[in-house]
């Protein structure tokens, strides 16, 4: 069986190509992907598999932010919740767990029980618990995402309720001489705190994290600290949605 799973995220498009047991992982900038690999004719929209260098005999299953906005004539579309849940089933082999998915513009927490989705919750209309906030904070602080993910010492308390206003708060902290590491740690802790109302909605022994932001070790540290349980990032956190598009 040849399958392709595609997760069309707000920041990146993640793709997993599966030929039997062999998996190949690919990632594209979302805007570039739409420009280069989506083609339209009068009636339909297609994923340009030829241009992506994929044989036509691959079955394409996609998920992502625009599920209800997108419709591809050559792909089956499944919901993000289903894709991420299935991805975690596949990556962990467990059937009961809480999955925290922190994406570029949204965060969601899924409760899996005995192999089905028991419940889920998503962040409200606020970007302060998402990857986009981390990315903006890095730009303001002049550090990389990798550097941010190492910073977990003496976190500054960030009080702004809004990811945009928080940028000026970061500048204010820098101006008042607070250590960069303390401010960056504060960014990680503030994302973790923002996720708490979502995460604390559900209880399970095993708690996994997915999404690009799950690679942020400091964030995982703070989430674990705040809930008093060990949170385990999945093996391929950023590709979890795409993996969930593949048959189990």
């Amino acid at each position: 069986m040849k399958n392709i799973g595609i997760d069309l995220g707000s920041r990146y498009v993640k793709m997993v190509k599966a030929d039997g047991e062999n998996l190949e992982f690919m990632r594209y900038d979302t805007v570039s992907f739409y420009r280069q690999y989506i083609k339209r004719d009068k009636e339909s929209t297609y994923i340009d598999v030829e241009k992506l260098g994929i044989d036509k005999d691959y079955k394409i299953t996609a998920t992502g932010y625009g599920r209800n906005l997108m419709s591809f004539a050559n792909a089956e579309i499944i919901s993000e919740i289903k894709a991420h849940f299935r991805g975690a089933l596949r990556q962990t082999g467990d059937d009961s767990f809480v999955l925290i998915d922190i994406g570029g513009q949204d965060s969601k927490v899924i409760l899996g029980k005995d192999g089905y989705i028991e419940d889920f919750i998503m962040n409200d209309k606020c970007a302060a618990s998402t990857g986009r906030f981390a990315e903006n904070a890095c730009n303001v602080l002049g550090i990389t995402i990798d550097e941010l993910s190492q910073m977990d010492k003496d976190p500054s308390n960030l009080s702004s309720t809004c990811a945009v206003f928080c940028e000026s708060e970061l500048i204010g902290l820098m101006a008042s001489g607070v250590e960069l590491e303390s401010i960056a740690s504060g960014v990680n802790k503030s994302i973790a705190k923002r996720l708490m109302p979502l995460i604390k909605s559900f209880q399970a022994d095993k708690i996994y994290a997915s999404g690009g932001v799950a690679s942020n070790k400091s964030l995982i540290y703070y989430i674990s600290e705040l809930i008093g349980k060990n949170v385990v990032p999945l093996e391929n956190p950023q590709y979890n949605g795409a993996l969930g598009c593949l048959p189990l």
């Binding site: 932010y65 625009g66 599920r67 209800n68 906005l69 919901s79 993000e80 919740i81 289903k82 949204d106 089905y116 989705i117 419940d119 889920f120 998503m122 409200d124 209309k125």
Partner: peptide
């Protein structure tokens, strides 16, 4: 959650979609 008049946004659609899908699955089981 809704704020201003107009069509519901994409994020709300994703939630509704996933919720109905979850209910379908649970009902079938």
């Amino acid at each position: 959650e809704g704020d201003t008049p107009g069509d519901i946004d994409g994020r709300t659609k994703i939630r509704i979609d996933s919720f109905i899908e979850m209910l379908e699955m649970k009902k079938k089981k």
